[in-house]
Amino acid sequence: MTAATPVAASSAADPLPETGTGPNRRKALAALAIRLGALLTFAFIMLYFALTARGFLSAYNAFNVVEQSAILGVLAFGTAVVIVGGGAEVQTGGIDLSIAANAGLCAAVFATLSTAGFNPTVVLLATLGTGLAVGALNAFAVVGLGILPLLATLAVMNVAAGLELTLTENTVVSAASPVLAFLQTGRFLGVSTLAWTLILFSALMILVVHHTAVGPRLYAVGGHPEAARAAGLDVGAYVAGTYLFSGFCAAFASVLLVSRLSASTPGTGELLLSVLAAALLGTVFSRRFVPTMGGTLLSTLFIGFLANGFQLLGVSSYWVAGVQGALILLVVAVTSFARPQEH
């Protein structure tokens, strides 16, 4: 006999239990508290700076930080999108290690072509093309060849960094262009173009990722590829798209980069760790513990204000990285207790 009956409750008429039963509600509340905890930590640090650092609260200073954060922010958005689309597993998840090196390469292309006297439109197109080409290479490697993202983008990072060095011979290439002039001196409502760039870019990211169909689909692709496939989504296309987008962000950031310094400088690749920190730290502001655009913006500004506050307080810049690291660990440690446990 193979007949079998699961253990039953008495009658058939009971409806299924409602959600929001004890453990679920408690878990949700804990997650909420933790999320607020991250925000509160952020607010507390801001408050501390406001009380102790002269000039911290001034609008001038605030926009200065926003301006300084623009480059990091754009790159962090690119990284966050890649992590969303590829999943957050440590070794096999989505990641783009080449994004900072790509930005360096794009900056070199931009500066070199500008100096060589090319038409600004051509220069911009070439820069964008460079960023997208690197992104396409990543997309091909990850989606087409199935190489681990960590590994594929690492190899591409070497290529991009090497090409940048070849182009600039490891020197500062100063650049002048109407595009740069606009970015450097343009103002609207008393706010600089660079600051506007971050504000508008963030707004656009939040709108597209959290208010159009792209968002839930992208999260589905990263969160459970089989489920996404079963729902009829082209998983490969979405993942490839994230790498192309991160290439676009690299090109976009490179223009901002050159405008800030009026030149392309070596060492852009070193931004990588800060970019990763900003994108990953953003996850703590989300109840789902996934990277979100708002969270990425918040953590980017957090990192920016932190550096700025220390500067105003006259704390040695040597401390900044360490305190950043410690705060990241603190915030993540606090949230890790609200996460569903792995084993």
């Binding site: 459970h224 489920a227 789902r288």
Partner: peptide, 10 residues
Amino acid sequence: LLVPTATVAE
């Protein structure tokens, strides 16, 4: 086959 981080509506 459901995405763990999605909401019911999503």
